[in-house]
Design a protein around this nucleic acid. Structure first.
Lengths: 140, 140
DNA sequence: TTTGGCACTTACTAAAAGGTAGGTACTTGT
DNA sequence: ACAAGTACCTACCTTTTAGTAAGTGCCAAA
């Protein structure tokens, strides 16, 4: 398989950092490597399952590499590859855009949760997660 | 509700253009307005349901506006707002990145389809859609 | 000896996203 | 009269994505 042809590059990119957690992971990772547990703690709501699943896909996509120190207790570091760094750079303007318009985006009804379009049943509504700042060095 | 706090702007942005079709829709729309049927034809695999659902969410998010000519037969045009245009501009570098690395992304195994990570059953595998170029004027 | 941390794995389940197929109201073309 | 085109709406169902909770092997501290 693997014969998809994308329409505008954007689709290709979204295919790589799509999903709920990958951008956050890359965001934490791209300035400096981080260990599994470090990432888990750095990204509030993430489950271990999603974390390693995302990490594995990101590794398969070549945006991070796994560095196993083969120590005991286990010690593994994930590092952004140059490819991953280039992606994070391409992501920057979008990130800025999001930041700039964050209030507007945050305050729209059903933010991050609206299937309120057509028939399909729609319900639920919850939010509020711990915030977090951009990953600045100083937490290791 | 609507009390989500994003971590890095990127999340906010992804919340607005996330999903399978929105970027394509914005991409078709941002250079010039398009009618519903025009969009449907411009975006190969999209269903009417997803098209109008996406359009509505995009309208609610203020990135497009619906212009109803109140004619019969119905005639409706969707136009990108300045907000939408700014988004499409922020999207540009990511689009370029995707375009630049498209082959690499396209040729990775399970492209656009790999749940091949952990336990969770994984199967299926299909691809190949009609390609398409960036929306160039000349189809109205 | 029990607890806890490390980096995971696995199975099961819930929710979200997307797809299919039908219908609406109205008019024009055949 | 009937098919087709406009722009949708609606119900139902499948696929994909994410979450929960438990387990693995190993070692150190309590």
């Amino acid at each position: 398989m693997s014969g998809k042809v994308y329409c505008c590059g954007l689709e290709a990119a979204l295919d790589v950092i799509g999903g709920k957690w990958k951008v956050m992971i890359l965001w934490v990772l791209h300035p400096k490597p981080a260990r599994f547990g470090e990432l888990r703690r750095a990204i509030p709501g993430i489950s271990e399952k999603m974390l390693i699943q995302s990490l594995k896909e990101m590794e398969a996509d070549g945006i991070v590499v796994r560095h196993d120190f083969k120590e005991i207790p286990p010690r593994v570091e994930y590092v952004a590859t140059p490819f991953g760094v280039s992606l994070s750079e391409a992501l920057k303007p979008l990130c800025d855009w999001g930041q700039q318009h964050m209030e507007r985006i945050e305050s729209r009804p059903g933010c991050s949760k609206r299937t309120t379009a057509q028939g399909d049943r729609a319900d639920g509504g919850k939010a509020a997660e711990e915030p977090a700042e951009e990953p600045a060095d100083g937490a290791a």
